[in-house]
Simulated scan of single mutants.
Amino acid sequence: MNENEDFERAASEWGVDFNGAFLFEIHPDENYDGEPLYFFVDLVDGKCTRAQQIDAPTSENFGFRYYGPATHWKHLIRGDVDAAEGRREEKFELDGDIQKILQYSEAIQFMTENAQCIDTEFEY
């Protein structure tokens, strides 16, 4: 994301004077019976300052939590659904200031597109 000027523009001011960090949670479901997976992404003023898998959701301070079952994450990463559509269709849940999400919806779309560019293999 840090090399994407469009994301930088769209996310300008994101996380300034509020916690813009995300916790992404992948929950087990009928197709994935492993442990829940947690990913922390810290975003401030158009830049990703940190992104990593973490062991527990309580280990980081985040302002937003986006979570859902593994099968829906697979569809999101493959581009079959976008983040906003997944939330509207109740495939995902979101905790955090929805007004901020709506205000920065273009940046959220760029984040989703960036995630879709990561080479990902699913074992389910």
Rank of each mutant, 00 (worst) to 15 (best):
G79L: 13
E123V: 03
N4E: 15
F39N: 07
D33E: 10
D6P: 03
L76C: 01
N19S: 09
T58V: 05
N19M: 09
Y66L: 10
D119S: 14
N19L: 06
D80L: 09
N19G: 08
G68S: 12
F40K: 03
E106Y: 11
W14G: 01
D29R: 06
R65Y: 09
Y66F: 14
K100R: 09
N61L: 03
G86Y: 07
V44E: 12
F22W: 06
I101H: 02
L37I: 15
F122M: 12
Y66A: 01
N31G: 07
A56Y: 15
F18M: 12
E8K: 09
F62V: 10
L37T: 10
E25S: 12
A107Q: 07
M111A: 10
Q103P: 01
Y66I: 08
T58W: 07
L43W: 03
A56E: 14
H75W: 04
D119L: 12
R88E: 00
D82W: 01
F92G: 02
A115Q: 08
A115E: 05
G96F: 02
S12V: 10
I101F: 03
T120R: 15
F110N: 08
K91T: 08
A84M: 14
D29W: 05
D45K: 14
N2R: 15
N61E: 10
D95F: 13
F122D: 12
I98L: 03
E90G: 11
G79K: 13
V44D: 11
E90M: 13
I98Y: 04
G20E: 04
G79M: 11
E5M: 15
T58I: 04
L23I: 05
G15F: 00
A115K: 08
D55T: 13
Q103A: 06
G34A: 09
E30A: 15
G63M: 01
F24G: 00
R78F: 07
L76R: 02
T112K: 08
A51L: 09
H27V: 05
G46E: 01
D42L: 06
G68K: 04
G34T: 08
Q99P: 00
G34W: 09
E123Q: 07
S12A: 10
D55M: 11
L43Q: 01
D6E: 13
D17C: 06
E106R: 13
R50G: 11
Q52K: 14
V41K: 00
D45E: 14
G79V: 12
T120L: 15
Q99L: 11
Y32G: 05
L94M: 06
N114D: 13
E121C: 12
G63S: 06
Y124W: 15
F64Y: 07
A84E: 10
G79D: 10
A11I: 03
Q103S: 10
M111Y: 13
I118F: 12
D17Y: 11
A51P: 00
K91G: 08
Q53S: 08
L37E: 11
P36F: 07
F22M: 02
G68I: 05
P28G: 06
N61P: 00
L102G: 05
